[in-house]
Simulated scan of single mutants.
Amino acid sequence: MPAERRDLTGTVVLVTGAGAGIGAATARQLLDSGVRVVLADLDPAKAAAVAASFPAEQFLAVALDVRSPDAARQVVAEAVGRFGRLDSVVCNAGIGVFGGICDYSDDVLQAIVDTNLLGTVWAVRAAVQHFDARAAAGDAGGDVVLVASVAGLGTGGALEAVYGASKHGQVGLATSLAREVRERGIRVSTIAPAAVNTGFADGVGRTEGDPVKDGFLAPDDVAFAVVTVLEQPRRMRTALWSMWSMAEQP
């Protein structure tokens, strides 16, 4: 018999970068599955708009700058304050540019690393601290899902060195973290998509409305992967899910 899917109804999931793109698609699919979703974004109004068609009691939209460890802890506290617990965190917030190593300012490259890598670290730490506190009370388990990129798997392009480095860091973080927390009932999964048709890097290496994007993955494709790994029976875990559109050559 096929493995049963876990019913996610009533569970609580934090999604970072939930105001647009993959984060918004993920939040909507989770809400459709009956999940109570904390939509965290630099712009909480955009995050709230993503969930506007769902019952107000099913979601919480909050401001989050993932580069701040204090802000990450505060968002987890807000999630617990609203819903009583946190079951999963989806670390999706990210930025990037396409260009040579010398084409952008120091501040831009620093922001990529701070957002993509350290921003993931802070959100993961805050979530794992909560999972461990729950486990001490007899309620062990939790899920950490990182939305990385195939650029973190050695297939990055020639004009995304710093972005690729930040994504390699996410993959390395997930690999070691999975070994650290598995025996505590915490699963760690990495979703690594190739190009996705979003506003990512528009104006900094990509052009809004470029028809080449029509052959990219859709945000809902990546969201499907996120929801699928969360729905797995607790006895199993997906370490890495890399995905390409049929139009792209790995």
Rank of each mutant, 00 (worst) to 15 (best):
I191R: 04
I191M: 09
V12W: 09
V90Y: 02
A127M: 03
A47E: 07
G154K: 11
G157S: 05
A151W: 11
G215N: 12
Q249E: 10
C102P: 02
A18N: 13
G172P: 03
A27F: 01
A111T: 12
A137E: 12
G164D: 02
S166N: 01
K213I: 04
G199S: 08
G100D: 09
L14P: 05
V62Y: 03
P193Y: 00
V196A: 06
S68A: 11
A71R: 12
D221R: 13
A126F: 08
D106S: 15
V227W: 02
D65H: 09
L177Y: 04
R125M: 03
T155V: 07
L86A: 03
G141E: 04
D214C: 11
D32G: 13
A218C: 06
V75R: 10
P250F: 01
G142S: 00
D202A: 11
V145S: 01
A79Q: 03
L86S: 06
A123M: 04
V226T: 12
R179N: 12
S166V: 01
A201M: 14
D65N: 15
Q58P: 15
A192I: 02
R134K: 14
F98I: 08
R237Y: 09
R182V: 13
E208T: 15
P250E: 04
G17C: 05
M236H: 13
V181I: 13
D143F: 00
T120C: 10
G96P: 08
A25D: 07
I101A: 09
Q170R: 07
V37Q: 00
A49Q: 05
T16L: 05
M246A: 08
T120L: 06
A79N: 07
D87W: 02
V162K: 12
K46F: 07
P55E: 03
A47G: 07
A18Y: 05
A56E: 15
V15M: 02
K46A: 14
A133M: 07
A178T: 12
L14N: 06
V144G: 02
D70Y: 13
L64G: 11
L230H: 02
V15L: 00
A201F: 09
V204T: 11
V226N: 05
V227M: 01
D132H: 08
A126S: 12
T16D: 11
S53G: 11
A111K: 14
S33T: 11
Q74D: 15
